[in-house]
Write a protein that binds this DNA or RNA. Structure first.
Lengths: 187, 187
DNA sequence: CAGGTAAAAGCTAAGAGTTTGCTTTAGCTC
DNA sequence: GAGCTAAAGCAAACTCTTAGCTTTTACCTG
């Protein structure tokens, strides 16, 4: 077996780097396995054997790029932290390239867990925000509540209705968590 | 130009039928354009010229299969109508084949509108339920509210966290629309 | 630290899918 | 029913994918 740091790891890193470089140079839709393999200095059969097909490889790379690289900012209150996070999330994810990454991540083997990893990233970020609020002594909702009421609607709109999305929508969703005024439905 | 009912329409119908038949026979993952073209009695280049690639074709067919074929059932109250609809929606969409259709629909040209069409189907169904409730004299939430609070969370879980989904979750989401007890967040 | 071992990569050729220019057909319009 | 145009058929060139076999690499034992 080849351990981390060995040849396997170098090949994987090289192929991932080749995907990132080439998708910037020629565009995501023009990528082919032979092209990526050549840039990475490996043979196409290596890529096919390790990833199966182009989709699976793109899915892998997409998940890496969707991993947050910063801790959510501290704006003093739970509400402002969530609002800022939701606005940034929407901003990053609703761009054409952001949507492409999400779609690629969803495209991989459903049992491979790439999609689940994306969701986990968001949940971790939310958890950081909620924990910080709890330390301040604020009442906090469950992570699941924020996922259902903010993340899920944002992601749904990004995937299914990409038009007419703006930061105001993200703010309204966060407000909905704090506002118990009702939905207009009688019980 | 060839109008509806002409050769174009026949080819489209034949190719769609071929996709449905073959995906039942050999499985969605084994489909190829030449295989579909042969079953439909057309040449592969016809398929490539009309749809561009296999993904686009599968996306088209998936949207058709995601179109609801019945009106939401009437159970006497808004709450029971929504609950029944959400449970059925979850049941149909969370199956392996349901998830595959959703993924295929999302995969097509983002500007082609296939994803938006799926969302519109759900919105139409919700609208029927809400209109019926309004006629009964019940207070009703906006369609958007139901999309955000029920459809989006269901779809998010189906796509990103397919494990651990059950009818109880769907019921809780519907309850959340009627229950203004709060989320645990202080304002 | 030399030799053995197993996993992973390289190589190559056969097979399958995709693209494209040109020709033919179908259906509309006058 | 003759002309016209969009779409389909055809066929060849091209690219991608797959698979069997060989070679390399890194780890591990003696």
């Amino acid at each position: 077996m080849v351990r981390p740091g060995g040849r396997s790891a170098r090949v994987q890193a090289g192929v991932h780097a080749a995907v990132r470089e080439l998708s910037a140079e020629v565009g995501r839709d023009a990528l082919t396995v032979p092209m990526i393999a050549q840039r990475a200095g490996v043979t196409p059969s290596t890529v096919y054997r390790r990833w199966g097909d182009l989709q699976e490889l793109l899915s892998d790379v997409a998940v890496e790029r969707l991993r947050p690289d910063t801790t959510p900012g501290d704006h003093g209150t739970l509400r402002s932290d969530l609002t800022a996070w939701a606005e940034q999330f929407l901003d990053e994810m609703s761009s054409p390239s952001g949507r492409a990454y999400i779609r690629d991540a969803l495209l991989g083997d459903p049992d491979g867990g790439n999609a689940g990893r994306c969701s986990a990233y968001a949940a971790e970020q939310i958890d950081v925000i909620l924990s910080r609020a709890a330390e301040r002594g604020e009442e906090t909702p469950a992570v699941e509540t924020v996922m259902d009421r903010v993340v899920a609607p944002l992601m749904y709109r990004i995937l299914f209705r990409p038009d007419g999305l703006d930061a105001e929508y993200a703010r309204q969703l966060v407000t909905g968590i704090f506002d118990n005024a009702g939905t207009g439905a009688a019980d």
